[in-house]
Amino acid sequence: MPEISTLNPLSPFAAQISHLFVAMLVVLGAIFLLVLGIVTYAIVKYRDRPGAPPPRQTFGSRNLEIAWTLGPIILLAIIFVFTVQTMRASDPPISADDPLQLRIIGHQWWWEADYLKSGVIAANEIHIPVGQRWLLDLESADVIHDFWVAELVRKIDMVPGHPNHVWLEADRPGTYFGVCAEFCGNEHAWMRFRVIAQPLADFQRWQQAQLRVPPSPTGGAAAAGLKLFEHNTCVNCHTIAGTPGNQQIGPDLSHLASRTTIAAGAADNTPGNLYRWLKDPNSIKPDTHMPNFQLSDADAKALTAYLETLK
């Protein structure tokens, strides 16, 4: 059986939608079978045969037509009731004193996750504690994006100038795939992210690790890499805690080595891929906003070594 994420909910919100979806698939499927049955019967039974009598000219039947107008109206009225009910259950109303936990900002083509309580700034990987209901604020730095984790939460757009809010919760620890669902420019396809739900203790450990200022390497290639980072244009876009870099134009790299992918899901986070990325970003993610700095092999190696220390 294929893994159908919309029918495999792992949060109370997605579960509500999934139940209604299954019910609707049954209802819609039954209606299709009814039409298919009627049409099949008609074309088999009334197909033109030699010697068949000329068909009787009938013009309609008021009663039948009223019946097949009212039938769908009643059915849709019932569906409507469940629709409204499921809307409230899968996207519960927000009150003014519900605390905001996370601000997710869509960028062309990556995700920024600001933890409003702890001050952690993550990118493309959103860690949450299992079983806790978090309120998210969704914004955009440029064009319209859309936040979608099919197993956990409804789609919701990130519209510049129009912040949206949504509840996020996961029933079980695990990694859930998320993706941008609104076309946002050339690399819309590689604007993916992961939600990593952890037991509370693990989550807190992760959060503390993210808050630590990464130690500066003191020797070898990594130290050379740090120098390259500080003295080149890297710092104009990226933040690494403890260095002059403090911009949020590209992802915060303070703990890059703790992430599973680079370039918003375009490649696994391995030293080899990181090196390729630094040498020629377009070879991993064509049209990315990360420029090709024409780094020498030695410089790219040094930078890779430095970035690999950022656990």
């Binding site: 919309t6 997605a14 509500q16 939608i17 209604l20 979806f21 609707m24 819609l28 209606i31 299709f32 039409v35 298919l36 049409v39 849709l76 569906i79 469940f82 629709t83 499921t86 809307m87 899968s90 996207d91 859309d146 979608w148 099919a150 409804r154 789609k155 919701i156 669902a181 609104e182 076309f183």
Partner: peptide, 26 residues
């Protein structure tokens, strides 16, 4: 008649707002 019926019925799933939240733009 049959193909349009499928399209019409799957269209109803976009009128059911919570299903649209999952299925739109997919």
């Amino acid at each position: 008649l049959l193909m349009f019926t499928i399209g019409g019925l799957s269209g109803v799933s976009f009128a059911v707002v919570p299903l649209d939240w999952q299925l739109t733009d997919s």
